[in-house]
Simulated assay, not measured.
Amino acid sequence: MAPTTTIETITITRPLKVIAFICGFIVIILMIMALASNDWLMAEGWRQGLFLHCIEEDVIPPLPFNLHDPPGCYYSRDVTYIKATAVLCIITLITDVISTIVTGIGLKTQNHNNKYKCYRIAVLVMLMSLISLLTALILYPVCFAAELNLGNRPVWQFGWAYGVGWGAAIFLFGGVVLLLCDKESEEIYYKERKIVHDNQLRA
C-alpha cells in the first residue's frame, strides 16, 4: 500500500517563557520579604515597616512623629501613604501570583490556542503588578518627605526591605519584557512525515 503523509504539530517551549516564570516566582519571594519586614524606613532608635513600627531600647527622645510610646513594636501609624503602600504591595503580590500560575499553565499545556491565551493573560496581569509596585515605591518616599519635619532625626535612610521592593520591580519588568518578546507563533512548528501502512491480509 502506498505511504501516506501526516502532519504533526510540534510545540517547543522557549527558554524565555521559562525565565519569565522564574522571574514571577522570585517576585513572590521578594514581596513576601518586603511585606513582612519592618526595615522600610530607618533612623536612630526607629524602624518602620508597612504594618509595624519599632522603637528600640536605646532610643533618644523626642521620638519621631511626636510619639510617646515605650520601646517595643506597635501597629503602623494611621497615615494614608503607609496604608496605601501596603495595599499596593499586597495587590502586587496577588497579581504576581496569578500571572506566575497562568504562565506555568501556559508552559504545561500542549494546546497552542490555550497556550497563547495564557501568555497574553499573564503579561497583562504581570504588567498590572508592575504598575502597582512602582506606584507604591514612588508614593512612599515622596509622602514621607512631606512629613520629614516631624521626624525629629537628622538622618533617615530607606532600609533593605525598600530595596527589595525595587528588586522585585526589576524582576517584574524582566518578566513582562520576556513574555512580550517571545512570540507565541515561534513556538508552533509543523512537520510532515510519511508513514507506510501495511494492510495486506495474510492467508
Rank of each mutant, 00 (worst) to 15 (best):
Q157W: 12
W160Q: 07
I121P: 02
M42V: 15
T103R: 05
P71K: 11
D39E: 12
I55K: 03
L139P: 04
A145R: 06
M33L: 15
K117F: 04
I94K: 01
F65G: 05
T11Y: 13
L41Q: 07
E8K: 15
T103L: 01
A145N: 07
W166F: 14
A203P: 11
T80R: 14
S185R: 14
T6N: 14
T95Q: 08
I12K: 15
G24R: 05
Q110F: 10
I101A: 06
P3R: 10
I60F: 06
V196G: 06
I94A: 08
V27G: 06
Y190G: 00
W40M: 06
L67E: 13
F25A: 15
T100P: 07
K115S: 12
A161R: 00
V176R: 00
L139T: 09
P70N: 12
A146S: 12
P71S: 07
L150F: 08
C181P: 00
V18R: 05
D58P: 00
H112C: 09
L127C: 05
K115Y: 01
L35I: 10
Y162M: 01
L63Q: 12
E184W: 04
M126D: 05
A86W: 02
N66S: 05
D69R: 15
G163P: 07
I91M: 15
K183S: 10
F65L: 09
D182Q: 07
G159N: 08
G163V: 00
V27R: 05
L41K: 02
Y116P: 02
L88N: 05
P154H: 06
M1T: 08
P15V: 05
F65D: 06
P15F: 03
A34H: 04
L124A: 14
L180H: 06
A146K: 13
K108V: 12
K194A: 13
T5S: 14
V79N: 04
A122E: 04
L93G: 07
Y119C: 04
I131N: 00
M33R: 10
D198R: 12
T5C: 13
K17L: 06
I131S: 02
F25Y: 09
L124V: 10
R202Y: 10
E147I: 09
I94E: 02
L52C: 03
D39W: 09
Q157G: 12
P64L: 07
L172D: 02
Y75F: 14
P61E: 08
I101Q: 00
I94S: 03
R47T: 13
I28P: 04
K115D: 04
E186L: 11
G106V: 00
M128Y: 05
T100W: 00
A146C: 10
D39Y: 11
A86Y: 01
P61I: 03
Y162T: 00
F171C: 15
T6Y: 12
C118F: 01
S129E: 01
V27I: 09
Q48P: 06
F171L: 15
N111K: 14
A43N: 09
I10H: 08
P15K: 02
I32G: 13
I7G: 01
N66H: 04
A122M: 00
M128D: 01
K17R: 11
N113A: 14
T5Q: 14
G106K: 02
A145S: 14
F51R: 13
T5R: 15
A145V: 01
K83E: 13
N38M: 05
L93E: 03
E56N: 08
L133N: 06
I94H: 03
